[in-house]
Amino acid sequence: MTFLIQQTLLYAVPLMIVALAGVFAERSGIINLALEGIMIFGAFVGVLFVNLTQTLPVFADAKAAGNWVALQGYEILAMVVAALFGAIFSLLLSFASVNLKADQTIGGTALNLMAPALVLFLIRIIANQNTLQMNGDAASWFMLKNSLFGMKRTEKGNFLWETFVNKSYIATYVCILLFILLSILLYKTRFGLRLRSCGENPQASDSLGINVYKMRYAGTTISGALAGMGGFVYALTTANCASTGDVAGFGFLALAVMIFGNWKPLNIAGASLLFGLFKCIAAAYTSIDINGDGVYLLTEIGVSQHVYRMLPYIITLVVLAFTSKKSRAPKAEGIPYDKGQR
């Protein structure tokens, strides 16, 4: 059970934060199809940052001395760097769709093509292979472990401790915290209200003195930052801090989560947990022991592994089929804002 919850969280949290990234863009009126590409780019930048800086004395010493607090700070710093570059990368999308009034679907597709190409081009030159990794493994550098808190090797905490602290990453909790804070920003502040108005009726917002272009830039940039960070968190927690120019369709899955969640943070959190669960089942069904009796139920049913791998995508389609009638996208999304239009 502990294993199931932990693994689900590992998959659900990047999905959740990237889906929220989608919400920020779409609520401001820009369709961000480029989430996948920005994730790939963010993952690459984060991994590259760790790869380049981990030999610096300040971090290497912290590692040697077992100063885990400093290492957690290092992890968060890498997340910030990934977010920053994700935001910069997303400027390409905002520039095309806000200033040049380009087709947002094509612009997003372009970014989705650009990110893996650029990343693989650079990785091949930097690392002479198709994968860029940090030196050593992510678990020994960044994972929270019982031993860090002075517990003995055999000692075990209670259920909650084992589930949520031991063998988890602080990135997961930073993301959850950010998710909550940004949801409040979107729903309870003046900025959030203005941002959302630009996605519903930009002409009306403009007439009230809101700068629609700025708001759309803000929405897309926040979106880019979150997606970049989400990409790095994905690479760190599920891919052992390696960048391969690929995030296995997580960006697109996040889009589905966003639509399934009806562009609302709370629903998105629920939806991403559901998808995280299915992703987790697909990845690790052979080692899931639901009630702890040593029987690996999902393996024993004898269903092909391919079915489990397909499941998240099939569920998405089915769920969308049922919810699409009720779902309500921001009204003005995808339409370039033109001041002259009424």
Partner: peptide, 17 residues
Amino acid sequence: EYITDVIISVIVYMAAF
């Protein structure tokens, strides 16, 4: 060879506008 993928993506980006 990924350089050509970069070129293609720039072309798509330009095609957007």
